[in-house]
């Protein structure tokens, strides 16, 4: 049974996951009985009543009220059970406890930002304490498209929109790392928009919090800062570090390479070019890539962060 459960569903890691799974298994078992019954009937009838001669005659049976009422009422009862069960669990999934720890979630193409109540910001990774209800207050960035936050092991999924807040909640039952995905199609980097929910024990979480709050970003070397920005600003959704071509050109070996643009011109990718292509991505578009990089980084990144990114790219030779 355990094996079967794990075959169909990822491990259940939130408080309400077990209820969802129970309904999933209930429907599967009833469906399997139905399917086996229908299959046996098809095979049995096909053999028993196979045509023996072209002159075969068949009885005239137009209907059978008892039978028909039976196969209407039994499914009716079953679906009412399934509805009630699903409804009941849904109410729980939509009712965050009052003492929830609240995290603001912002999605954008193609990445995630999480902001804790104490001001800690995380990108593409969410750290939460175990056995503590967590309420996610979620919104897509202004002017961005729809995304959806999905943690399979928590049985949690909720769409994010740029024009209103949505929410979801979970309470993790044990520490660990759980992958989350974007499940609302959002363009070229959709399948790269995943990350990790890190569930820590309360002590680990507290010491992590302390460490994060004590860190001074301004003291970091530029290239180190750039590595952080690379994930936090969402560059990794489109630009790889290993030479693979995603939505945009790879950063590996980009520095000082000749670039060809859709307007026919070429340029060497020096510091000036790198900075321009971050703050004004629409001006020079590389041949073979779509012109869809957000024109927002002049506002969302500080000058030091942009320089950091450039230093980071320079190191990737």
């Amino acid at each position: 049974m355990e094996y079967l459960t794990n075959f169909f569903l990822p491990s259940a890691e939130s408080t309400y996951a077990a209820n969802v799974d129970a309904l999933f298994h209930f429907i599967n078992i009833v469906s399997l009985i139905l399917l086996v019954g229908i299959t046996i009937a098809i095979v049995y009838f096909s053999i028993k009543y196979r045509r023996k001669s072209q002159e075969d005659t068949t009885p005239l049976i137009t209907h059978n009220t008892t039978l028909e009422v039976t196969w209407t009422v039994i499914p009716l009862i079953l679906i009412l059970i399934v509805f009630g069960w699903g409804f009941n669990d849904y109410v729980e999934m939509r009712t965050p406890p009052a003492n929830s720890y609240e995290v603001y979630v912002e999605s954008f193409s193609f990445g995630w930002n999480f902001e804790h109540p104490n001001g800690i910001r995380e990108a593409n990774q969410l750290t939460v304490p175990v056995a503590q209800p967590v309420r996610l207050i979620m919104r897509s960035r202004d002017g961005d498209v729809l995304h959806s936050f999905f943690v399979p092991q928590f049985r949690l999924k909720q769409d994010l929109m740029p024009n209103r807040y949505t929410y979801a909640w979970f309470e993790a039952i044990r520490p660990g790392e759980f992958v989350y995905f974007c499940t609302e199609y959002c363009g070229g980097g959709h399948s790269m928009m995943n990350g990790i929910v890190r569930v820590k024990t309360q002590e680990d979480f507290d010491s992590w919090t302390e460490e994060e709050l004590g860190r001074d970003l301004d003291a970091l070397p530029l290239a180190e800062l750039g590595r952080l920005v690379y994930t936090s600003a969402g560059c990794q959704g489109c630009h790889s570090l290993d030479g693979a071509s995603r939505v945009g050109p790879t950063f590996a070996g980009l520095y000082m390479r000749e670039r060809q643009f859709t307007d026919g011109s070429t340029r060497i990718a020096d510091e000036a070019y790198l900075i321009e292509s971050i703050v004004e991505p629409q001006v020079l578009v590389n041949v073979g890539y779509p012109n869809n990089m957000p024109n927002i980084y002049a506002q969302t990144l500080s000058e030091r962060e942009i320089l950091g990114l450039v230093e980071f790219i320079k190191e990737l030779q």
């Binding site: 599967n28 699903g86 409804f87 049985r155 949690l156 999924k157 499940t183």
Partner: peptide
């Protein structure tokens, strides 16, 4: 299965 709301949350998309 997909019509059951709580399970749908897991299976949607």
């Amino acid at each position: 299965m997909l019509g059951a709301i709580s399970v749908n949350v897991q299976l949607h998309d």
